[in-house]
Design a protein around this nucleic acid. Structure first.
Lengths: 219, 219
DNA sequence: ATTACTAAAATACGAGTAG
DNA sequence: TCTACTCGTATTTTAGTAA
């Protein structure tokens, strides 16, 4: 289990330059920086190595540490949280028409592996269904921007022997109702976006196929 | 002493909306979110209140929490750290074709009110002309991102009884030459970007209308 | 329903120190 | 020097429970 003080140590290493290169770091230095003893700092480093968040090399009697891709990912998510807090108001307007899904949206929404992550990361329990929107052609290029922006990551998982893919979530609003755009990580580029919400959007807004709606997405 | 797990709790409250308003939060909910017991979460809340990072009110038997200015400041510092880590050297690639302006670019570049600001804020004296680029359609939506990013502000001013509008500048590179994208603040959305540089880019790069060029923009 | 107290259990910490 | 082990102690956490 990854704890806040591990993230703090990881962040310190990253700020020293360990995000991009190997940096010399003794456990004593780390201890001073974090306000703990050398022994504790040493243990923190071991924990981080154990969790695969940093790698360590000894080159000519000096210890070099460097973040692994997994470690970077942890910090990138922290960053995404802070961006959500302080960089709100960057928004994109999407326009599209309602289309029917094949019901797979609801199937995925029922999977425990997703439901738990939604609750934890989106901070609400979504309605078990998705609203599918076919974007107007002039807005399709905005999908690239959305893919590039950070968003909230949903991790892939396995269940009953099959694999469920990861996704990226972006907070949005449709007719003043809070919702979330969910973009599968390894989907083929498409002109359809899926929207989930605490409520049944289709019912609540009285939407039917071919209706045109506008959606604000917050990057 | 403020510990990492206090910051984690503070961040969670902020993400729930406590940055801007009072939000209902029970110690049980907080405990679940942080992966600790109700009792521990209760203690965390008390610590945060004690440190003056959040305030708590009881309204009709519900407890509302909200960050204090001091609490916001703590998170803002965290945010600044992550920005240093991830928001240096973020760049966007633009592709477009060279088009002719109507010479107004050069007119504006000659205005003392602009020239002085360029010198002071861009740290160089731009060539008195602009290179105009019509973006490829797939890159037009990147303009939104550029408008929302911070950039360097050029202030509006008055001279000879007329008003000259403000603009936002973004550092860029074209064929490895440093340049600056200048975006008028109150322009109608357009697919054309204007580029200025110390040198006469058109001459230096031997560009003519309809040539296709790539531009890196640093956000 | 809550919050939060007390006491026991679990965990983390740092001193001493080996390698 | 350094890292990182053991182990006694301090702190933190949680269960039980009162308010």
């Amino acid at each position: 289990m990854l704890k806040p003080h591990h993230i703090a140590a990881l962040k310190h290493i990253a700020l020293l330059g360990g995000l991009h290169e190997s940096v010399i770091l003794t456990s004593k230095q780390l201890g001073i920086a974090l306000g703990v003893s050398q022994q504790t700092a040493s243990q923190r480093l071991l924990d981080l190595i154990n969790d695969g968040l940093i790698s360590r090399d000894i080159i000519s009697r000096r210890e070099y540490v460097k973040l692994t891709p997994k470690g970077m990912e942890v910090l990138r998510r922290e960053h995404a949280d802070y961006k959500r807090l302080f960089e709100v108001g960057k928004k994109l307007l999407l326009k599209g028409t309602i289309v029917s899904g094949l019901g797979e949206g609801a199937f995925y929404m029922r999977q425990k592996g997703y439901k738990e992550q939604f609750k934890k990361k989106l901070l609400y329990d979504p309605y078990e269904g998705t609203l599918n929107l076919r974007l107007s052609s002039s807005d399709i290029s905005k999908l690239d921007i959305m893919r590039q922006s950070d968003g909230i990551d949903i991790d892939p998982f396995e269940s009953d022997g099959r694999t469920y893919g990861g996704a990226k979530c972006l907070p949005a609003k449709i007719a003043n109702i809070d919702c979330t755009i969910i973009m599968p990580k390894r989907s083929h580029h498409s002109d359809i976006v899926e929207v989930i919400s605490k409520q049944n959007l289709r019912g609540k807004l009285g939407l039917k196929d071919r209706d045109i709606v506008e959606l604000s997405v917050f990057l």
